[in-house]
Write a protein that binds this DNA or RNA. Sequence first.
DNA 1: AATCAGATTGGCAGCGCTGCCAATCGCTGT
DNA 2: ACAGCGATTGGCAGCGCTGCCAATCTGATT
Lengths: 338, 338
Amino acid sequence: MNVHEPERRLVTLADVARAAGVGESTVSRVLRNQGSFSKRTQDRVAEAVARLGYVPNRLAGMLAGSGTTAGAKLVGIIIPSLTNIVFPDLLRGANAALDRDGFQSVIGVSDYDPSREEALIGALLSWRPAGLIVTGLEHTPGAVARLRASGIRVVEMIDTDGTGLDIVVGFSNRAVGCDSARHLLDRGYRRIGYVGHDITRDLRAAKRLAGFCETLVQAGHPLVERAIASGPSSAAAGREALGQLLARRPDLDAVYFSNDDMALGGYFHCLAEGIAVPGRLALFGFNALDIAAAMPRPLATIRTPRLEIGAMAAERLGADGPPEVIDLGYELIPGATA
Amino acid sequence: MNVHEPERRLVTLADVARAAGVGESTVSRVLRNQGSFSKRTQDRVAEAVARLGYVPNRLAGMLAGSGTTAGAKLVGIIIPSLTNIVFPDLLRGANAALDRDGFQSVIGVSDYDPSREEALIGALLSWRPAGLIVTGLEHTPGAVARLRASGIRVVEMIDTDGTGLDIVVGFSNRAVGCDSARHLLDRGYRRIGYVGHDITRDLRAAKRLAGFCETLVQAGHPLVERAIASGPSSAAAGREALGQLLARRPDLDAVYFSNDDMALGGYFHCLAEGIAVPGRLALFGFNALDIAAAMPRPLATIRTPRLEIGAMAAERLGADGPPEVIDLGYELIPGATA
DNA sequence: AATCAGATTGGCAGCGCTGCCAATCGCTGT
DNA sequence: ACAGCGATTGGCAGCGCTGCCAATCTGATT
């Protein structure tokens, strides 16, 4: 397409103004439905816009409007990964709320790499967004400095275990770990193991595990054994890691997984090996994936308010007010595997 | 954060130029590493940038650079949904390629709604992107008109069954359906059913089903029965729909699912009901989700090159050249459920 | 020492739009 | 008929950066 056109200049607001026989600022007002103008003017502008196929240039709009209230109808969102459905869910929640307010979002994927996150923050800030939504509370000093210097609203989502920069929306991963442990203990499980993925990268999983272990220790039944899959979480990794874990400690009576993907893999391992769940081995996950609820025995897990977190993050981004921490909680789903 | 600052103006390129004791255009050249400048100048600029914490304003940059080759380091991507992992996968592939070339992406989610897609196209075009990546070949006339008028490169991804606007990257969904049917027929299955989700919205699923049915008819063993879940695809929907399907036609010997999510649910139904797979009932999916490969019996399915499609779409967006169709194919994974 | 190509640099006019302000219009009240 | 006042409208200076071009500088060459 592009190569064929003889470099035809795109229609500008000035073209519309000329075609409609009005001034530029009048067209601008009509288009943004701001200020006052007559019905007749509105119609003429609308007609000209339609006839010329005018598409406003938001770059120019934002540039011109910078420094004032309006302008910035853009937010940046940084998530660590697109592999795990959790993050698309957060995006989905944020997107819905953002759309409603006429915002557009630019997203960046950090791949769980703090330095990449810092670079992305720089890149996104250069679009002069109205605000930035980032994931988690841990950032490089450089990233924090940029965020502070930008002077814009920042929302850190998902995690509340730590100190935030501005607004924090999420839940306590540590508390999730504690509650998960307590649930298993309450049900009488004593020889408990853990199956997780790379915890040096996924800091939230590490916090859950910390809370989990602490509660077990307090109860006098410390974690028996753990298996850590290298690489990101997946059903395949969970299946394999559980196999290894049980090979080392066949006497376990319950296993806590870093998330539902891993747990699902573990469940498949049990199915394949004929291990009764939860009779012989109890399984506990995290995230409440749809798939886990459709299992023959619904997975015991924790439902996290992902859409709500995304939506709340987006909503708060537009609001004025002091920094605050919004804990949206979570819900333990007993399921039937523990 | 924002409310505390006394409206401090952000650092501009002019500030940097002054601080470094050089001209604005020199700073611009150094920052973009374009044109020539001395090492000494480069160091002074770098020092000033670091000291002032300068963040370039890409809005201004793109506006100024519009009309010329450079400038536009932005692309728009429109996908129908974030619920199904397929689309995040496409994004992931595109993102990786885009990042490499220093592009940023603005994404829009159409929610499978053509008129919403049209609106999103308008919104994204107003950012004056270098190109646009959209999903599928079906668009409203208005959307097509806007796309054409924009004069930018457009890539339609995933589907090659139809006529594209500019560049098309994907595979034939119809052929997928045909091959899936042929595979089941070759294995001796004759009483075949279908479990799908809302097909009026997911046009690609409809194409697969069309190819599937056609092949069955040609072989003289037309589709016996179908169950369509309302709403989007999910394991829960697949599980329930398969239950209904079998209630109506207990004699089926194979079921084709609209995708792996649905098939996974179907598999769970079989597990729960003690239906032997594939002894009593064969299952066939689509997409080759990781999870489906971790099942006790790996799911028979079709692997689609999602990352590759995203990556290729992003790559082609930057290239010059005539419109073309790039078929990246797919791979049938026999698995163990059929 | 004069000359010249090439490297380096600065000045400045926009890119397309919005904010601000002054000008004009349409009515009302007296 | 005329002042008064809000509703409408147009003009124009930027927003921060890049492209273009002219100015200056650096050595090497004659």
